[in-house]
Simulated assay, not measured.
Amino acid sequence: MSRIAPLEPPYDPAIQGQFDRIMRGAPPLVLFRVVAGQPRAWEKFRAGSLLDRGPLSLREREIVIDRTCALTACEYEWGVHVATFAGLAQLTDAQVRATVHGAADAPCWSEGEKSLIAAVDALHVSATLNDAEFTALSAHYDDAQIFEIILLCGFYRTVSYLANALDLPLEEKAARFPTSAK
């Protein structure tokens, strides 16, 4: 059970409508139910506007999210994203595993994806990109995409803080961290 109790149905109609838009008819995640119980936090969370696609492909977006969640040891959010989007993003089992256990230069990634993962790693460790990391990223991504990468890292770091600190129970249908790099 979460350290802060999630909302239970029936939900206020406005909240139900928001859940329906985000979840497209599926039951709301525990994370959403917990955050929605705090109106100011819920408004700020939704105002982040990073729950949409943005200028990155689904694959690129999921690589950023999965790697960020893995680096923050957030099995909750990593598992939700892998279960929901890894197949749609055409991430192989080796690539999914590499988001948790692989180096940025793992051979399963394209050159652009390697620069993407290296940027996520750098932002996680130092909260910045050095000139070489930014140049490598710029070789594959335009300004709007670079902004999105940075914003996604920050947003999903916040999501990881919430899920980890509130000790959210893992979603039943979510993936689990792989035990080794294989």
Results as ranks from 00 to 15, higher is better:
A5I: 04
L7D: 00
L7Q: 02
E8V: 15
P10F: 02
D12I: 11
P13R: 11
A14N: 05
G17K: 03
F19L: 04
D20W: 09
D20G: 04
I22C: 01
R24G: 04
R24I: 01
A26S: 09
A26T: 08
P27D: 00
P27E: 01
P28D: 04
L29Y: 14
L29R: 08
L31G: 03
F32A: 08
G37Q: 02
E43D: 12
K44V: 09
F45P: 08
R46N: 07
R46K: 07
S49R: 13
L50T: 02
D52S: 14
D52G: 12
D52Q: 14
S57M: 07
L58E: 11
E60C: 13
R61A: 05
V64P: 11
C69T: 13
A70E: 03
L71R: 15
T72L: 08
T72M: 10
A73K: 14
C74Y: 00
Y76T: 12
Y76S: 12
Y76K: 13
W78L: 02
V80C: 09
V82H: 05
V82L: 09
F85W: 12
F85G: 11
A86F: 00
A86G: 02
T92D: 00
D93G: 01
Q95R: 04
V96C: 07
V100T: 12
G102C: 05
A103D: 13
A103H: 09
D105Q: 13
P107S: 10
P107C: 05
C108D: 04
S110V: 02
E111A: 15
E113D: 04
S115V: 03
A119I: 05
V120M: 04
V120P: 06
V120N: 03
A122S: 15
L123H: 01
L123F: 10
A127Y: 03
A127N: 14
T128V: 11
T128R: 14
L129A: 10
D131F: 09
A139Q: 09
H140L: 00
D142A: 06
D143A: 15
Q145M: 11
G154E: 03
F155P: 08
F155R: 11
T158Y: 11
V159D: 01
S160L: 02
L162I: 10
A163F: 08
A163W: 10
A165F: 13
L166P: 08
D167V: 11
L168I: 14
P169W: 05
L170V: 10
L170W: 14
E172I: 12
K173Y: 04
A174H: 12
A175Y: 02
A175N: 03
A175K: 06
A175R: 11
R176T: 13
F177K: 10
P178S: 06
T179Y: 00
S180L: 11
A181P: 03
